[in-house]
């Protein structure tokens, strides 16, 4: 039996439901947009932020030959003062351990003065180009004297750090990059410090690497010496510098 042709002429009342449907969907879309705009921030941290899992090893990254980002600062780089400044921090005249002592035995004396209760050492007259501690040239603290551990200024002028601050910074950066902290026994407590001295030749090669003052922790001492032995060159000394070599005393502070 054939369908009645009448059905082709019947029209369901679609008009109102369609309008209602359009309004409903438009409303839903609007709600989504508003939600996305105003509640985005309430979902917590984005993916990819925050610390990683145990797959990352921070020590290794900092040992790559790239500048490591260290937040530790002894206010050397945050000060705006130029090298050769004569300004002195107020605290310098108050605290005996803040006096710059142009002496290679600085660490021993500092320790003594801290431990004893004798009256503070009188501030020594500053030479006009002496850079006060923490107020140094653009890169690093620096004090200089001619010869080994001389207090007087009869030898070298001690202007390397102020004239070639950028080079001091290069040394600092390069040694820090090559110090692999995982070589240090992790059981060692923080606060240990080892002093290592070495020479930099005209061509930039380090030599005469030796531990000046041990930290008392063999693995820390060895890691410091190894850091320097990994370095082939610091780059040639500045062309304007007249000397044949520069001696460096570098300390390694053990912080986890």
């Amino acid at each position: 039996m054939a369908a009645s042709p009448e059905i082709y002429f019947e029209h369901a009342p679609w008009g109102r439901p369609i309008v209602a449907s359009v309004v409903l969907h438009a409303g839903l879309a609007g709600v989504l947009v508003v939600y996305a705009l105003f509640f985005q921030g309430a979902r917590g941290p984005m993916w990819g932020t925050g610390g990683g899992g145990d797959a990352m090893s921070a020590t290794l990254v900092s040992s790559l030959p790239l500048p490591s980002v260290e937040t530790q600062s002894q206010s050397v780089l945050v000060t705006e003062s130029k090298g050769l400044t004569q300004s002195q921090p107020v605290a310098q005249t108050q605290e005996p351990d803040a006096i710059p002592i142009p002496d290679r035995n600085i660490k021993k004396k500092v320790i003594k003065s801290v431990n004893s209760t004798v009256k503070p050492r009188e501030p020594e007259p500053q030479p006009s180009n002496q850079v006060p501690f923490g107020e140094g040239g653009p890169a690093a603290t620096f004090s200089a004297s001619g010869g080994q551990g001389a207090m007087s200024f009869s030898g070298g002028s001690g202007d390397f750090g102020s004239r070639f601050g950028y080079y001091v910074r290069v040394v600092q950066q390069k040694v820090s990059e090559n110090w692999l902290k995982y070589e240090v026994d992790p059981k060692v407590s923080e606060g240990r410090r080892v002093y290592v001295s070495f020479d930099i030749s005209r061509g930039g090669d380090p030599s005469n690497i030796q531990v000046e003052q041990s930290s008392g922790v063999p693995s820390l001492d060895i890691s410091a010496v190894r850091a320097l032995k990994r370095i082939d060159t610091f780059g040639p000394l500045p062309a304007d510098y007249a000397g044949n070599k520069v001696s460096v005393e570098f300390y390694f502070d053990w912080k986890k």
């Binding site: 050397v76 750090g161 820090s176 410090r193 000397g243």
Partner: peptide, 22 residues
């Protein structure tokens, strides 16, 4: 000093001094 290059200059520095990019 500039006339006597035999003198040695000293740099004293260490780690943890805020090594940042130049």
């Amino acid at each position: 000093n500039s006339a006597s290059p035999a003198q040695t200059d000293w740099i004293r520095t260490g780690t943890g001094l805020g090594v940042e990019k130049v």
